[in-house]
């Protein structure tokens, strides 16, 4: 599902697209744009897509990465899809709290919990 130069590891399981970041730092604008395009391409042709993004490898992310997640959230809403985030390091979760994006996104402690939460 992903190309060789993908910044994501992707698999589909029980109707859920599970995407995991490869990089520890999600900072670079060009990289973030490529990740956004790749995630959008995964869901755009799916009827009511279910997308789970795991942050298990991520140590740092920038506000541009938060912006990309909002773009994906908005696209998923337009597709009547469901988006879940999981495996977020407590320090990165604090970034979501400061920006109040923890209220916008459905965030779960683990990927398995997030997968179980899809309607």
């Amino acid at each position: 599902m992903a190309s060789d130069d993908s910044r994501l590891r992707v698999r589909k399981e029980s109707g859920v697209i599970r995407a995991e970041f490869v990089d520890r730092n999600i900072l670079d604008e060009a990289n973030i744009q490529a990740i956004t395009d790749e995630l959008l391409a995964l869901v755009v042709n799916e009827p009511r897509p279910k997308l789970l993004i795991s942050f298990s490898n991520v140590d740092h992310l920038s506000s541009a990465a938060l912006g990309a997640l909002i773009t994906i959230h908005n696209k998923m809403k337009g597709l009547s899809g469901q988006l879940r985030l999981a495996d977020i390091d407590p320090q990165i979760y604090e970034v979501f709290e400061i920006t109040k994006l923890n209220k916008l996104f459905q965030i779960h402690e683990t990927s398995d919990e997030a997968a179980d939460s899809f309607a």
Partner: peptide, 17 residues
């Protein structure tokens, strides 16, 4: 960007952080 009317906008968080 924490206000409900701005929360879904994809900008404005760098300075806040």
């Amino acid at each position: 960007c924490t206000l409900p009317e701005n929360i879904e906008k994809a900008c404005g968080r760098g300075v806040m952080l």
